[in-house]
Design a protein around this nucleic acid. Structure first.
Lengths: 237, 237
DNA sequence: CGATAGGTTGAGTCGCATCAACCGGGGTGG
DNA sequence: CCACCCCGGTTGATGCGACTCAACCTATCG
């Protein structure tokens, strides 16, 4: 299996053999995590950068009274936070949703990468800008989309991102998220997630059971979600 | 008046005389905009980076059916998007809320800055990471805070950011936002913004009239908002 | 085989949206 | 200089989308 992180980097710039090896080396010795484990705590002083090699994780924040919001999903190939170590403090926790393998890259390695020339540096910048746009798209969902639209949008996004690293054909994929997780991503209650999912099902848009998702009518789903993949900035493939 | 952008950069790293001059030069010839003007359209190919020298602006997206979400506010000193030009496409529009002066910095100048050494490069990274955290905090508001909490949080944040560039004492500031703007930031309706503001007023937390805001009880306001300024990463001053 | 996590369903409630009317002030044109 | 206009703010009535609470159902796993 090819390296999903390498794949995402190449999405931004063509890489020399040497650079490819450099990146492979960084991610050579990933760490294993169980499902529902904590990877980084809020308030930690970050010294390394996490790169997802397999599994699903998320960035989240829990308010003092227990309200929880998932801020982003991490899928294979995603880099959790290039350069976080500059800030000296993690403002949000990172936790796994499924068993994961995660590469821990030291700050110095990142600095070396960017010092080695503008190409890798700009690939990192590019990734970060896409992360930003993704976060903005979530803000739009939470602020202005209805419950069903939010779910539809999330499904479209995840499917596109998985497809980008070869983990989906754009229609079918693994779906490890519980309805509770889904509620915390989309800012709604579990019960309402359940009902909204049923709406998507009875409208013939998706099929979802035993941790597998199939989109039955992608065009209609995307239209309902007002989903425009431009913000993901995926290159043709 | 000191340069607010310089001030924010110095928040991240001490700058040599030379670097200071370099930054001053970049922002020497800003462009003037009226209130409610468009600065960048969605879909534009960005060739330069915008730096706010005075006035308030915002990043926004309008869905096909007219729903509008403001994704971030730009206050003096804010850099709208370091390195956007890498993506080749603006996914969100930028528009002014008040009359503004905005410095347009060419892509090449940004590249020169970062090539000149890690210091300025990391200051830019730092700013971007803070932008990201700010966007995440908005997601939390939209996803998990109630109407009053969202408003309170926004007020706390803006006040802190203005104070950071010397435009507020942390209690009083200009407040050019209409209730309609406020609704589009906080993902609610104008009417409900009105009622929630009244709640803040009658609770003795704020005073707001004729475009001036005064916070009467910052501690209680911050507690209500569940506001923790850590995510802004302001250095002591 | 019991325990448990996740999913489903129903009833009742509430926060916030919508629609619509009205108010008040600053700017403009006659 | 006054009348008007228009934008932004305010208020009330009504409806709906989503939340809460609570019970029950189902698959998985030790």
């Amino acid at each position: 299996m090819s390296n999903p992180f390498l794949r995402k980097m190449e999405n931004f710039t063509p890489l020399s053999e040497d650079q490819q090896r450099q990146i492979m080396d960084l991610t050579a010795a990933p760490v294993f995590f169980d499902a529902r484990e904590s990877v980084v705590h809020e308030g930690d002083d970050p010294t390394s950068v996490n790169i997802m090699m397999s599994g699903w994780a998320c960035r989240q924040k829990t308010l003092p009274d227990g309200r929880r919001q998932i801020l982003s999903l991490f899928l294979p190939g995603d880099m959790c936070d290039p350069y976080v170590f500059l800030l000296g403090r993690m403002d949000y926790a990172i936790g796994t949703l499924t068993p994961c393998t995660i590469a821990k890259v030291e700050a110095q390695s990142i600095r070396d990468m960017t010092a080695s020339g503008p190409q890798l540096a700009e690939a990192l910048w590019g990734q970060t800008l896409v992360t930003l746009d993704t976060q903005r798209e979530l803000s739009i969902s939470l602020g202005r989309r209805t419950a069903v639209e939010r779910l539809a949008h999330l499904i479209c996004e995840v499917l596109a991102r998985l497809a980008d690293v070869g983990l989906s054909n754009g229609t079918i994929c693994d779906w490890p998220l519980t309805q509770n997780d889904l509620a915390d991503v989309t800012g709604m209650s579990t019960v309402h997630v359940n009902r909204s999912l049923q709406e998507l099902r009875t409208d013939g848009l998706i099929e979802l059971r035993s941790r597998r998702l199939a989109v039955l009518d992608h065009a209609r789903l995307a239209a309902l979600a007002i989903f425009d993949p431009a913000y993901l900035h995926h290159r043709k493939r």
